[in-house]
Design a protein around this nucleic acid. Sequence first.
RNA 1: CGGGGCGUGGCGCAGCCUGGUAGCGCGCCUGGUUUGGGUCCAGGAGGCCGGAGGUUCGAAUCCUCUCGCCCCGACCA
Length: 431
Amino acid sequence: MKMSHYFLPTLKEVPSEAQLVSHRLMLRAGMIAQECAGIYHWLPLGLRVLQKVEGIIRKGLDDAGFHELLMPTLQPAELWEESGRYEAYGKEMLRITDRHDRRLIYGPTAEEAITDIVRRFIKSYRELPQVLYQFQWKFRDEIRPRFGVMRGREFYMKDAYSFDIDRESAEKTYGRVIQAYMEIFKNLGLKAIPVRADTGPIGGDLSHEFQVLAETGESDIYYDGDFDDFTFRGGEEDLNRIKKLYAMADDMHDSALCPVPEDRLKHKKGIEVGHIFYFGTKYSLPMKTTVTNEQGKPILVESGSYGIGVSRVVAALIETNHDEFGIKWPEQVAPFKIGLINLKVGDDQSDRVCAEIYERFRNAGVEILYDDRPESVGVKFSTMDLIGLPYQIIVGPRGLKEGQIEVKDRRSSEKILCSVEDLYQRFLSHA
RNA sequence: CGGGGCGUGGCGCAGCCUGGUAGCGCGCCUGGUUUGGGUCCAGGAGGCCGGAGGUUCGAAUCCUCUCGCCCCGACCA
């Protein structure tokens, strides 16, 4: 992508409404723009990151054997009356009336919708367990939206729903999701701790929040310091270790009952990037969702639901990956892998070398953003640091005189000088 | 919803108290200049001051209402 033709409205000054660093950087880097309170446009650069995050989550879920579908944003009120949540969910739920005075709601979650699908199409225990998921925009009419996409009213969410024949099987599925989530968050470059949590309006009796440690987090969590050294490799053994380690949301923590010795107990702030629930027959009972068991008798299905705040993950990534100059994207979620800076547009040699590098990387399928704008060097360096691409390739007359270009690692700030051939060697040898 | 703050060119702000129909920085456009960390110079475009009503000879400035946004709290994935 050539920056001269890209849509990248970066800001030099910080819009006054933004307090949180991720909110500021997303606005300044031209990733998002506010539409109204708690509702945001995702501009090209931001959308690329959102889609990268989505892709990593999708792969993790598909690898775990779950199946993606897509449900509508709008749902009929009747479905929610059937589960009893039409009244219970309260003002957070956006209610709409269509031209025929039919009552609709903009989905804040989709337990009713998915349960309706399952009861219509799944008839036998042989078809279970089943885990279905989607990526879809949700709307929850927060009393006070804040912090940009961290706590927006409209947000992009991955929501998964599981269906099993009994509690034992359902808890196994619950464990499979925990494993998939640990893998996903690791792949996203986030350290997430699963903490025991209250179940809230989703309901049920088993629930974990996945918390990313960050000073600016809105949640208070208490956990065994051993979590800090815990690296998830997957498998039954690690899952059992996770289940044993103490980690609690503040409303679940009781210092009198906490088994962790004081010197090992950590109390920190976290960003809740995921929340999972096991709720048994909470929806299958009122919605009469049964399958036939081995004896040919109808049994209620046992369910759980599992969310990841995709748009919030983007903000969480910035909260944990930035410095005073801007964002420092982990490579796997970066909007582009490489930023190419032509320090002197108009200089024959610089133009030629940049054009060659740009084409070579593009042909190799490496995502590269080429700053070919006739701006001063300071502007280019600042822009590139701000948007935080992992590697900067800096080309100018001074270096070219020695046959050299510069490669800067945005995360480590490490700079090396090398030839163009070395550059290809380093980035394209395996491609 | 309770408490607080703010709405003035794209962004950040001053002007408002002590009414006389708008100013600064950045950005944008043009020309020149500069070229390894938001370069410098000159010229230029762009706002009727969130909206409505009122007071007044006259309102961005005063009054009333209203809409929007932000912060704290309660609440929440």
